[in-house]
């Protein structure tokens, strides 16, 4: 499983490096969304860092959904999908590999957008740096949940149902825990209490993905 995971992660990241979708589409989208969020709050409230954690994770959720759609598209063309299916790759390994690749992409985007929260939303730099470990764990959990969501909303019968929409609340605990932990790091509470939730969620989504990805992808 680990061998397949490394193989798939390396392939997805290499494709990403070549296509530069992250550079030219995802990062600009995230930056623009963060900037618009600041503008929507108005100059008075955007200047207060209390809004920054929530806006950051909301934007990262949109970025996750966009990146997941891209990750699915790599394998989704009919010919590619069939050819890869005949390789008989372990589905748990494919899930892990896609999660690793997506995590790296979210970390890159997240690092840039964290800088954006400091510049645009005036989040405290020291607090933001203190939150970065927690943010990294939460983004990894978002990636795992995102890959599972992608399997539900990809080509197949599932995409024609409400299932993908109904799976969106699965992101809620991550948004809440991530926002609370980031807020705590900015000086409003206990950082690790919320960070633990992200860590538990990461383990839970990884376990679920390893068990269910093959079934979801096959359907």
């Amino acid at each position: 499983m680990i061998r397949v995971a490394l193989l798939v992660a390396a392939k997805d990241l290499r494709v990403e490096l070549r296509s530069r979708v992250l550079l030219w589409q995802v990062v600009p989208f995230g930056a623009m969304a963060l900037l618009l969020s600041g503008l929507a709050l108005g100059p008075a409230r955007a200047g207060h860092s209390g809004a920054a954690p929530g806006l950051f994770f909301l934007v990262m959720l949109f970025v996750t959904l966009l990146t997941v759609a891209r990750s699915r598209a790599i394998d989704a063309r009919a010919g590619t999908r069939d050819s890869i299916a005949t390789l008989g790759l372990d589905p748990g390994g494919v899930f892990l590999g896609k999660t690793v690749a997506l995590t790296v992409e979210l970390w890159v985007t997240g690092a840039l957008l964290l800088a954006g929260t400091v510049v645009v939303l005036h989040a405290n730099l020291a607090g933001t740096l203190a939150a970065s470990g927690n943010v990294a764990v939460t983004l990894a959990a978002l990636a795992a949940a995102g890959v599972l969501h992608g399997a539900l909303s990809g080509p197949g019968d599932g995409s024609a149902t409400l299932l993908p929409l109904l799976s969106l609340p699965a992101f809620a605990p991550l948004l809440i825990a991530g926002e609370r932990a980031y807020s705590a790091a900015l000086g409003h509470g206990a950082l690790w209490a919320w960070g633990t939730i992200s860590l538990v969620a990461l383990v839970a989504y990884l376990a679920l993905g390893i068990l269910l990805y093959g079934v979801l992808d096959e359907s």
Binding site: I74, D82, S83, T86, G88
Partner: peptide, 21 residues
């Protein structure tokens, strides 16, 4: 049927590869 897939070779009429590799 996943057990079967490793034993056959498939070439579809659509593109079967990663364009960016």
């Amino acid at each position: 049927r996943r057990a079967l897939r490793r034993r056959v070779g498939w070439l579809g009429h659509d593109s079967s590869f990663y364009d960016d590799l």
